[in-house]
Amino acid sequence: MSEKKATREAYGEALAEFGGQYDIIVLDADLSKSTKTDTFKKKYPERFINCGIAEGNMMAVAAGIASTGKIVFASTFAMFAAGRAFEQIRNSIAYPGLNVKIGATHAGISIGEDGASHQSVEDISLMRTIPNMVVISPADAFESRGAVLAAIKHNGPVYLRFGRLAVPYINDSSYKFELGKGVTLREGSDITIIATGLMVKQALDAGEVLAGEGINARVINIHTIKPIDKEIIIKVARETGAIVTAEEHSIYGGLGSAVAEVISENCPVKMKRVGINDKFGKSGKPLPLLEEYGLTAENIAVNARKLLNK
């Protein structure tokens, strides 16, 4: 399928779609056109609150609104949500276990030209360390829609990670999102590629490349990074004996770390992590940047071959 859509776009549409059925309040911090919460704002202006350029305040306001029984979505760029407002999220949202959904857009280096100051590659790690926090990183538009609905239905804080870049569909309209469940997208017995976000498509492409070389790679999409699907990870470790992880995030603390934690305690197998290797990003067009930082199908395949000594 050649059709593409940015996950932030799907996020805005999902808010507008479910805003009729559910009494949700949407907050933004002067970025509604970019985060796409303006799609919701146009339909339900009375339930949209612009908080101005004040992310720390926005998160704690969200906590206050949620404490009165409402479901709140608070949106800004991932850098200013998980980054700037980390402690407000931890102490005012997660500690009291409040029903705030953080819609963090423009995550990763694929935000592109804005450069390192805006490229959040630490947010999964930060959010994953907070007790009570659910962390979701959807791979395409259909998964994003499902993730928004699951976040609405889940009682408690959720961090939703969306991207700026239009990404190809890997699912279709029949897709059922199951919180906390990894999805097997390709069967294989030689090695497993576990990916999240826009790297899922790259993992699938790597699977194709490897198949051409006689390597059968299983491909797993982990959209819910916390709570992580331990069962599927232990299963693929047992059955395939080698794992490559792939994420548009630092190799410290993200999906790769989460997978390593599970397998090292349960079923240690050889592993490699594809991600941002302890570096800041920089300005550039998204695709060449992803290439330069090794976030490609080709680099996943290279790492898979290395693990299998091929």
Binding site: G115, S117, S283, L289
Partner: peptide
């Protein structure tokens, strides 16, 4: 651009004359 020094937001370590990295 990916092969330029002028980052989207001022970067102290990349651009001569810039006294502080900003953007946030």
């Amino acid at each position: 651009q990916i092969d330029g020094i002028l980052q989207g937001h001022p970067s102290l370590k990349d651009v001569p004359g810039v006294d502080m990295s900003t953007g946030s």
